[in-house]
């Protein structure tokens, strides 16, 4: 891997890590309203998969979507303003953390639901012969939703060009995957005649290598693919989670394999510090801009409910 690719990848991953940590601080200081689901620790799966997509492809994501959004758009200002509830946010403060939109990028807060929506999007791209594919990020928790099985069944029957990028972070909120999921993950795809693979390592370059193969398969064959990505969130499910359901030993073990720290070690100290400084400055500029931005004009609150 060329050093420039490492620099670029580290910058994207660090941006997500620093963004999420700053969001947590803003929440603890009472500056933010509602809740949020950080992806600290899962930066490699977000950046690794998104890196392999074309800009005209389509991404759907979940309640835990900041990392995917930043990897796709790099729009720190739009995301920060959205979470801070400002008119300058990507959805003018209507959606907040869980409901984000950018060109070809859609998130929603219902577990598994976007797997079906993404499948339909893939069929539309196929109908237009656009050559685009859809990447739907899902989590291990979504496998317990019937609609995901329904959607994958239809994707296989109807040859939808969709990559289901399944981030298996071992926990659906507080409940370990062994308590919610019978059998294996990849065998579910096999039963539906969907190609699949598991990436055991969350080293970002292992993720990129596997995602490149998966994306190429989906695009060349117009077929669905399930890519299981083993990962771990170092933070709680949401900001209101003390992580009482798992041991500090388990967390420490995953922390030792932190994909961001691993990549940091491959960079020169001065280079790494420069990247981190740039990212933090972007985030601070976004916070300052959002603090100075208005909330959406209440006279506009109904706009977009009905399209003409």
């Amino acid at each position: 891997m060329a050093i420039c690719a490492k620099i670029d990848t580290y910058e994207q991953m660090y941006l997500i890590r620093a963004f999420e940590e700053r969001i947590a601080e803003l929440f603890s200081r009472g500056e933010l309203f509602g809740t949020t689901h950080p992806c600290i620790g899962q930066e490699a799966t977000a950046v690794g998969v998104v890196t392999t997509l074309e800009p005209t492809d389509v991404v759907t994501s979940t309640h835990r979507g900041h990392g995917h959004f930043l990897a796709w758009t790099g729009d720190v200002q739009g995301l920060m303003a959205e979470i801070m509830g400002r008119a300058t946010g990507v959805c003018a403060g209507r959606g907040g953390s869980q409901h984000l939109y950018a060109e070809n990028f859609y998130t929603n807060g219902i577990t598994g639901g976007m797997g079906a929506v993404g499948t339909g999007m893939a069929l539309a791209e196929k109908q237009r012969a656009s050559g685009n594919i859809v990447c739907s990020f899902i989590g291990d928790g979504a496998l317990a939703q019937g609609i995901l099985h329904e959607a994958m069944n239809m994707a296989s029957l109807w040859d939808a060009p969709i990559l289901y990028a399944l981030e298996n972070n071992l926990y659906a909120m507080s409940t370990h995957v062994r308590d919610t999921l019978a059998g294996g993950i990849v065998p579910r795809a096999g039963a539906l005649a969907i190609e699949s693979a598991t990436v055991e390592s969350d080293d970002v370059f292992d993720v990129i290598a596997a995602a490149e193969q998966a994306v190429e398969y989906v695009r060349e064959n117009s077929r669905p693919y399930l890519l299981e990505l083993r990962t771990y969130r170092f933070c709680g499910h949401s900001i209101n989670d003390e992580r009482a359901y798992r041991t500090r030993e388990e967390e420490d073990e995953w922390q030792r394999r932190d994909p961001l720290a691993r990549l940091a070690g491959a960079l020169a100290e001065t280079e790494r510090r420069a990247i981190e400084g740039r990212c933090r400055a972007r985030i601070e500029r976004a916070i300052a801009a959002a603090r100075n931005a208005p909330v959406q004009d209440l006279g506009d609150i109904g706009k977009g409910l009905w399209k003409s």
Binding site: A116, G120, M121, L123, A124, Q127, E150, N153, M154, W158
Partner: peptide, 25 residues
């Protein structure tokens, strides 16, 4: 016309995705 499996939630979800990307399902 597409004969769908008995998956009402899935079919409405798939159709919603089609609609978001320019079709009229």
């Amino acid at each position: 016309l597409i004969n769908a499996p008995i998956s009402e939630a899935g079919v409405v979800g798939v159709a919603t995705g089609m609609a978001l990307r320019g079709l009229r399902p």
